[in-house]
Design a protein around this nucleic acid. Structure first.
Lengths: 149, 149
DNA sequence: TCTTGACTTCGAGCGTACTCGAAGTGGGAG
DNA sequence: CTCCCACTTCGAGTACGCTCGAAGTCAAGA
């Protein structure tokens, strides 16, 4: 069984070696087992946990929240309820992000369509290059961008 | 026709007054028309543009990229192609974000299910409270998540 | 006239999450 | 033994996107 050092852990979790040490300092995983020489040795369980942390980060969880979660985890089996609730809240948060992105994506796509239309207007008319009159909001029906407060 | 000051613009775009001024400094909208007294007066067009900028930010576009876009916009009709291409790239970026979030959401949901199961194991068995033996993670082997640095 | 309050500019400060670099150690290859 | 390289610690630095506060101006209302 070979020892998994910080380099391999980095490769396998997608977190830089610097970040792995930082996460330990930050209380997200600590303390990792060491070899006699002082070098970190990650277990497979550590790697799974780090990979999961990475997913939490990738979905917008702050380091502070991850630390909270990690602390509960470290406290043992009695905290699974708390951890579940924390994840439920986070799942809802992720769904919100997805919805927001989808909504904004639609608007960006509409804008792209709008530009395509402008480009067609500007270059066509039987190959002649034309000065087109500025079009007010036209073409695509109901392009009214609503602002949210 | 009443003048739209920075306060109202803030309310209507969802950007703070400080941020509105910052965006102007940052070249995302500059220079906004002023009243004789020096106070900013936003046009409806300004508000639409700011609302759009807000959507770009909300979808992860950096201020630097927004500035690029804004610069093209300021350069006039000849740049619609560039702007369209920029948005196409960004739309793809948003789709990537949505995919990543959806994927991670699924894993978080699985973890929630896992906790629910643990909670059932810990509390049931005909109403008797039991010390359950630790269940191993099972399933997932091979942690390898490569991707964004 | 005085007060209030919404605005102005400017530069500095802040929170987050890394990211880096200097200086030192240990172990294996040659 | 010497060299190299991957690791170690620690504190400082960076990038980003705001966010704030001080000090001043202006116009309207009491």
């Amino acid at each position: 069984m070979h020892a998994i050092g910080v380099r391999e852990a980095s490769e396998r979790t997608g977190l830089s070696a610097h970040t792995l040490r930082y996460y330990e300092r930050a209380g997200l995983i600590g303390p990792v087992r060491r070899e006699a020489s002082g070098k970190r040795t990650y277990s497979e369980k550590d790697l799974l946990w780090l990979a999961f942390l990475r997913r939490l980060r990738a979905t917008g969880m702050s380091v502070a929240q991850m630390r909270q979660f990690a602390t509960l985890r470290a406290a043992g089996d009695a905290t699974t309820g708390d951890r579940r609730r924390l994840l439920e809240v986070h799942a809802e948060f992720i769904r919100g992000q997805i919805d927001t992105l989808a909504e904004n994506l639609e608007i960006v796509e509409r804008k792209i369509e709008h530009f395509r239309q402008e480009e067609r207007d500007a270059t066509t008319v039987a190959g002649r290059i034309t000065l087109r009159r500025p079009r007010r909001q036209a073409t695509v029906k109901n392009v009214s961008v609503r602002s949210q407060p």
